[in-house]
Simulated scan of single mutants.
Amino acid sequence: MKKYLMGFFKSVFNKNVQEVIPAVALLDKNTLRVLPPIPDSLVREHAKLGFELQNKSESKFDKIRRIYDFLNLYNNFARTFTVCGKGCSACCKVDVSITKLEAIYIEKNTGRVARRTKKHTRKHKSSCPFLVDNNCSVYDYRPFNCRTLYTLDDPKYCETKESHQLYGASGGAGIKMIYVLKEFSEYMNGNNGTADIRDYFH
């Protein structure tokens, strides 16, 4: 595991950005949003987390909580240039892949029983079972993929399903410090695989 965690300390970030577009700007999908550099404070917190995850006495659920706590910090940064807001729920109506470990974490913290179906279903059109009045009813315990997906242009494109600028899709692909946490979460899940959230909760 120690060798696996070395990835936490090898992230490289672009710090030569000249312009930051305010989060309030709603852009056309063809207008590129220039992103700010990742703050040094987050880089330090990420390195600290790498050491903490090597604590063998902690349960996998404690480690998930630590990862989610870091993602909360990262989300505070992401909100300075992304346009998602409370009440946005278009992304709660698409496929949401979660690990069995995440499903059990939700169960332990919410009381909603996770019952896995035999298939991994795809191409959903129905809302996530936890979406209530356009808000997430398990927000504090929501899965990794829900914590890392943002829109960079205009939320209207989420509703129309048009191809547009996303940030952190597929568990943070393209953001090294986030994606290595995704990989570590899947490592903890072992051979239990993944499935859509609707395959666990009905």
Rank of each mutant, 00 (worst) to 15 (best):
Y68R: 08
A25S: 14
S59E: 04
F13K: 10
G50W: 01
K48Y: 10
V34M: 10
E52T: 13
D40S: 10
L73G: 04
P37R: 06
C92E: 03
S57I: 11
R79P: 03
E52W: 06
L42F: 04
N76G: 15
L27R: 06
V20F: 06
R79A: 03
D28G: 15
C84G: 00
N14V: 12
F61C: 02
I67A: 02
C84F: 00
A25D: 08
K15L: 08
S41P: 06
K93S: 11
E45I: 03
A23E: 11
P37S: 09
R65M: 03
Y68F: 15
F61E: 04
A25Y: 13
Y74A: 01
V12L: 15
D28E: 15
S41Q: 14
K56Q: 10
S89F: 07
L49W: 05
K60P: 12
A47R: 09
F51I: 14
L26V: 07
S41Y: 12
T31L: 06
Y74Q: 01
F81L: 05
V12W: 12
E45F: 05
K10N: 03
D40E: 09
K63T: 02
T82P: 04
V17F: 07
L26P: 04
G87W: 05
C84R: 00
F70W: 07
N55I: 07
N16A: 11
R33P: 02
Q18Y: 02
K60G: 15
L42D: 04
C84W: 00
S89K: 05
F61H: 05
A47Q: 09
L49K: 07
C84K: 00
